[in-house]
Design a protein around this nucleic acid. Structure first.
Lengths: 168, 168
DNA sequence: AGCTAGTTGCGAATGAGACGCAACAACGAA
DNA sequence: TTCGTTGTTGCGTCTCATTCGCAACTAGCT
């Protein structure tokens, strides 16, 4: 399914070039620590957390601080070059709806809205998935901006806190 | 899309009954604080975090502790009566793959595996979604157990920490 | 080579969530 | 209905991810 092996390292250097180009374009300075973080990120095929990136960077450059890693990660995130897993940037959120349903995630305010769709409920996954393990259910996560955030001209990250935790 | 208004409160009492029945069946005591937490959860249409639930419960029962809310929430989660949003229970994880792809989330070890599927990339959402706002991209999250966890007979939650943060 | 604004690293602060334990209370038994 | 057992509660404490303030530092333009 993932047919990534053939071009893993090419994809890596390509991604690295993307990071540096985008940084230069954004007027962001290319410090050695940033370059090293870029290298680590470009090479990864997994979904590391900030600590994992930090550890990997420290192997080559032992003095980089945790903070710099966090800052760089969010910088790239703001530029749209890395994403975060799941809708929330913060605490765990619960979903009391256990029936089949899907999510509309607003990248502006963090609100998550349920929606139902019979056609999306029984999505067929590619056959290769069976080699991974057993899938119990699938759900679609649609990311975008809700009307309020569109109107407010709100971008993606930042201001993600106030409404994010609803229920007063 | 969400056609929930007609039966919101029915769904709520129904859900409350489900919680109490399941608890009784599991031999879990129905304390007043738990019942109140159940009521709050059964009534919510959103995706609250633990703090939000705590605040809502405290409005009616000011002495309940934060801890009891957490414990009850995870209890329900273990019974499969509430879910969490997104794959991670802990820190933020990053995804360096910005191209269209989808996720296989292992509920046992927390590992997330990418997979690609052209048919899943351009999923059509129900028309009602346009009233919510603008969707920039959709991705499928398939939840299940990877081979290793299946073999280890690992259930869902718990032991979710070790492998969850890969990249060494 | 010199400037200067953007960066770094550190120590400390914040805040979610987990833990240990003693007092407490469901609820089946008598 | 009372009793006893055992699961629960709430508190104080602890951990650990992530963020902040700030002084020292340096990319990159001139």
């Amino acid at each position: 399914m993932t047919r990534k092996k053939p071009d893993a390292s090419e994809a890596s250097t390509e991604r690295l070039a993307l990071y540096t180009a985008a940084s230069r374009a954004a007027g962001i300075r290319l410090t050695p620590q940033r370059l090293e973080i870029f290298r680590v990120l470009a090479a990864t095929e997994s979904h590391p957390d900030a600590e994992a990136v930090h550890r990997a960077v420290q192997r080559v450059m032992p003095t980089v601080s945790r903070d710099t890693v966090y800052r760089t990660l969010w910088r790239l995130h703001d530029m749209g070059l890395v994403a975060t897993l799941g809708p929330s940037r913060d605490r765990v959120r619960f979903d009391t709806n256990v029936g089949p349903h899907h999510h509309l995630v607003c990248l502006g305010c963090g609100l998550v809205q349920d929606f139902v769709s019979a056609t999306l409920d029984g999505l067929a996954l590619p056959p290769g998935v069976s080699q991974w393990g057993r899938v119990y259910d699938t759900q679609v996560e649609a990311r975008g901006l809700c009307l309020a955030c569109l109107k407010a001209g709100r971008a993606t990250r930042e201001t993600t806190q106030e409404k994010a935790s609803d229920e007063r």
